[in-house]
Amino acid sequence: SEEELIEKAEKLRKEFEFIWNGIRFIIRENADEIRRFEELLKE
């Protein structure tokens, strides 16, 4: 039914948001290391 689809979509959206926030947190935490690594690659 349509309601089930909406519920599934909402659940997926929440899971995606949770994963995305996790990725963003990891990137933020490691931003300095990532930048340093990029500098090494440029040399």
Rank of each mutant, 00 (worst) to 15 (best):
Glu4His: 05
Arg36Val: 03
Phe16Asn: 00
Glu38Cys: 15
Ala9Arg: 05
Leu5Gly: 04
Arg36Gly: 03
Glu43Val: 11
Trp20Thr: 00
Leu40Thr: 02
Glu4Cys: 15
Glu2Asp: 08
Ser1Glu: 08
Glu10Pro: 06
Glu29Gln: 12
Leu40Asp: 01
Glu17Cys: 15
Ala9Val: 10
Ile26Tyr: 03
Arg36Gln: 05
Glu38Val: 14
Leu12Ser: 03
Glu38Ile: 14
Phe25Arg: 09
Phe18Glu: 02
Trp20Ile: 05
Leu41Glu: 03
Leu40Glu: 02
Leu12Tyr: 07
Arg24Glu: 01
Phe25Tyr: 04
Asp32Leu: 13
Trp20Asn: 00
Asn21Ala: 13
Ala9Asn: 06
Arg28Pro: 03
Glu4Ala: 11
Glu38Asp: 04
Ala31Phe: 11
Leu12Trp: 13
Glu39Arg: 09
Leu41Asp: 01
Ile19Trp: 06
Lys42Ala: 10
Ala31Asp: 04
Glu4Pro: 07
Phe18Pro: 00
Lys42Thr: 06
Ala9Lys: 08
Lys14Met: 09
Glu17Phe: 11
Asp32Ile: 11
Asn21Ser: 12
Glu17Val: 10
Arg35Cys: 14
Ile23Gln: 01
Leu41Gln: 01
Ile19Gly: 00
Glu39Ala: 09
Ile6Asp: 05
Arg13Trp: 14
Ile23Val: 04
Gly22Lys: 14
Arg13Gln: 11
Glu43Lys: 07
Glu3Arg: 09
Leu12Arg: 03
Glu2Gly: 11
Glu4Met: 09
Asn30Phe: 15
Ser1Gln: 09
Ile23Arg: 00
Glu39Cys: 14
Glu7Trp: 05
Lys11Tyr: 06
Arg35Lys: 09
Glu4Val: 07
Ile23Thr: 00
Lys11Asn: 05
Gly22Asn: 09
Gly22Arg: 14
Arg13Lys: 06
Lys11Arg: 07
Gly22Val: 15
Trp20Met: 01
Asp32Tyr: 11
Leu12Gln: 04
Arg35His: 03
Ile23Cys: 14
Ala31His: 05
Ile26Glu: 00
Lys42Asn: 05
Arg13Thr: 04
Glu39Leu: 10
Glu38Lys: 10
Glu43Phe: 13
Arg28Tyr: 06
Glu29Phe: 15
Ile19Ala: 01
Glu33Val: 14
Arg28Ile: 07
Asp32Arg: 12
Ala31Gly: 04
Glu29Met: 14
Leu41Val: 05
Lys42Phe: 12
Ile34Ala: 04
Arg36Ser: 04
Leu5Tyr: 07
Arg13Ser: 05
Asn21Asp: 02
Lys14Ala: 07
Leu41Arg: 02
Arg13Leu: 11
Ala31Glu: 04
Arg28Thr: 05
Lys42Met: 10
